[in-house]
Design a protein around this nucleic acid. Sequence first.
DNA 1: CGACGGCTTGATCCGAGTCAATCCTGGTGG
DNA 2: CCACCAGGATTGACTCGGATCAAGCCGTCG
Lengths: 225, 225
Amino acid sequence: MLARSTEQRNSSPAMWRALTAPGSLANAFELMGAPMKFCRNREIYGEGEPADYVYMVVSGAVRITKLLSDGRRQIGAFHLPGDAFGLDPRGEHRFAAEAIEDTVVLIVKRTALENLAERDSQIARELWSITARDLQRAQDHMLLLGRKTAQERIAAFLLEMATRARSGNLVELPMSRQDIADYLGLTIETVSRTLTQLENSAAIGLATSRRIQLRDRAALNTLNA
Amino acid sequence: MLARSTEQRNSSPAMWRALTAPGSLANAFELMGAPMKFCRNREIYGEGEPADYVYMVVSGAVRITKLLSDGRRQIGAFHLPGDAFGLDPRGEHRFAAEAIEDTVVLIVKRTALENLAERDSQIARELWSITARDLQRAQDHMLLLGRKTAQERIAAFLLEMATRARSGNLVELPMSRQDIADYLGLTIETVSRTLTQLENSAAIGLATSRRIQLRDRAALNTLNA
DNA sequence: CGACGGCTTGATCCGAGTCAATCCTGGTGG
DNA sequence: CCACCAGGATTGACTCGGATCAAGCCGTCG
């Protein structure tokens, strides 16, 4: 059975359909996609593996990671329900993908999508658009990693998660402090301390460590400028 | 007249054709592209402007930048001869583009390329492929910005430039120390100090500040691991 | 209940940033 | 041809934000 938090992220078929952008690519996933479940921390694919499949998150959450030889880790992105990932036109995965919590994905053969794209320019455009959105996020993230302070990174992260989960001011984080740290280029200690600071300054409330209330969006937005 | 360094970067029509990947997109640029020259530090387009045109570098070099309100700057990428840039399927430039030195680009209307892509799946694939390559570079760069030390960043930068300019072990940098710093998430002082360190350890030679000899690639590659 | 994993907090350290002089060096004009 | 100048680059002294090292704390699950 799926965990409580997963249900809250709307994994019922009806909600799922509501989450996917209307378009032929979503149809293609619904028609051709094979559902598959990955347990917490299970690897979905590894860095350097051939990119034979494309994935779409149904429920749960996925992290995309890259490792340095000595174990330093960078998380390039989190993928939430409705996001397609693993799309690499060059045929090789440049990051590894892992399930953050128990996660269900739809899987489609890359060649199937590419054949479709060859005949249907709408599909081709949607595939391109997914890569373009990922690029845009990566570019925003470069500014964060290159130039922002710890407070600014945390504020940006909370606002991003609130926006993407469309859950108003209450953010339910699927990932651990270590994941957040590796996404933001910080350490767990700094993530924890900074969250405490933001709580003390009444910008956020920490109901539990994974459940965060955005109390003062104006303050967070100022930090995010 | 173009500067000496520009000639060295092979801007003659014959060399230019040799630089562009064989493919119909390169043809499209050659057939439909309007050449345009931008002087050093001239803005090619601004952040947030509508993305009505797509560009390809003929000679010179371009930087893609994003600013924070207080002036902190991140350079997302450098574009060298043969690179297409300004491609944003969402219709708005998320970064500004500026000429690093006197630069010639070919300009094509975005709608023209997209119309072409609608009928020619080969063109569509090439456009997607450009975005995918940019994404791949951005992802590698996130690891650098999030997790690498100053020495590792500089080593990675020098190796990247040597590879992309295909100039063997002698790298002729078109950009200033400030540009390098804003690309690597460092300060000019740290860039300068780190280059001096690498010179002292015999990994590189600094003929002039813009002309760098890679003396010990093994050492640089170790730093880049 | 007890143990373990994830999180927080505290003390200290250090790599890179900041501030402040110089030092080139390439371009200009005499 | 040379002296000068301006802007970029280097170097040095010192600071500081975030990392590291080291305890504890808390909540969950067997």
